[in-house]
Design a binder for these strands. Structure first.
Lengths: 111, 111
DNA sequence: ATATTATATTGCAATATTACGATGATTAAA
DNA sequence: TTTAATCATCGTAATATTGCAATATAATAT
């Protein structure tokens, strides 16, 4: 049916999945990496850097913005994007907690 | 066109995106969390826990297995799943590195 | 005012994902 | 051996995602 049954899961599970989903495209990973390196960038920078069409980059930027991991500021005729500090920390902590929860293989019960 | 242009990105970017994509569904987050709590589980456990059909759970387990984050062992008539230690550590480090790369907002250049 | 630059949005085609019933394969129990 | 239990795979319907050309919007420059 193609539609995720979000009602079966907790708000936290849905949020984690939504964030992971946004990172689940190499263009969006590349945009994040570019921002980590350059602090800011505009759509046009990414068009040159990634080799995708302007409309496509704009769409990826929107998804990153919607989940809150980046923010955009109008700067004359262009829009300057950067990492959203608070949101970055928030997701970092959520996923660190997940990763740290793993204790390592249990010799008795592990398959 | 619906097909990701993987050729435009580095192997690392594609790998990170593929892993994030697998985590990008609440059922798969829930499966991971269940495994973190119980060490092992079988398909039937998850059907009861999550409320999705057996075929659907099986499909999600396959995706987690394909990326390597879990492994399955035949245990009589059932299959016992658990976290794949090495792969877990590998992804943990890749994503920790990404998250730690962020230095915080730069007052001069940040938007 | 007009042209230029930069980005967002719309509409569309191709492909991918999600979910599940039905079916098949395998093991254990009766 | 028949039955039940467990899981994977196939086929299919509904929906989502990806990518881009065309167009719209907004700011700046001429």
């Amino acid at each position: 049916m193609g539609v995720t049954k979000s009602a079966l899961f907790t708000a936290e599970q849905n949020q984690m999945a939504q964030f992971a989903k946004v990172l689940g495209h190499p263009a969006r990973i590349a945009i994040i990496q570019y921002l980590l390196k350059s602090n800011t960038c505009i759509n046009g920078d990414l068009v040159l850097e990634l080799g995708l069409a302007q409309a496509t980059i704009s769409q990826h930027l929107r998804e990153l913005k919607e989940i809150g991991i980046i923010q955009g500021t109008i700067e004359g005729a262009s829009v300057s994007y950067c990492i959203h500090h608070g949101r970055w920390i928030e997701f970092k902590e959520i996923f660190s907690a997940l990763f740290d929860q793993y204790e390592g293989p249990d010799a008795n019960t592990c398959c």
